[in-house]
């Protein structure tokens, strides 16, 4: 299984999330459907960012792939926990 590592921006909010959505959509459409989202440099995420991660996950799943998340800062992880997305994503 080929897995592409993608770095999440430091501030994963409205502007950055839109660009990320467009870039990953292209990546998935080109056939890369297993993604490792690297949060090591990410210090903030809001519901817009979460929505983009969820839509990316669904797009990967539709195409037979999946996404994994890694290196989440405690505050960022807390947002995933509160919204119960830790039940959805494989976080390593």
């Amino acid at each position: 299984m080929t897995e592409l590592r993608i770095a999440i921006p430091e501030m994963f909010s409205v502007d950055e999330a839109g660009m990320f959505r467009d870039q990953t959509r292209t990546t998935i459409e080109q056939g890369t459907v297993n993604l490792l989202l690297d949060f090591a440099g990410c210090r903030f995420i809001d519901s817009t960012g979460l929505g983009v991660i969820v839509s990316t996950y669904k797009k990967c799943a539709e195409n037979g792939g999946t996404i994994r998340l890694t290196a989440l800062h405690p505050n960022v992880l807390k947002v995933f926990e509160l919204t119960r997305l830790t039940n959805v994503f494989d976080i390593i």
Partner: peptide
């Protein structure tokens, strides 16, 4: 797995 609807909750 909705794309929206988490903002007020947060």
């Amino acid at each position: 797995l909705n794309d929206r609807g988490r903002g007020l909750f947060l």
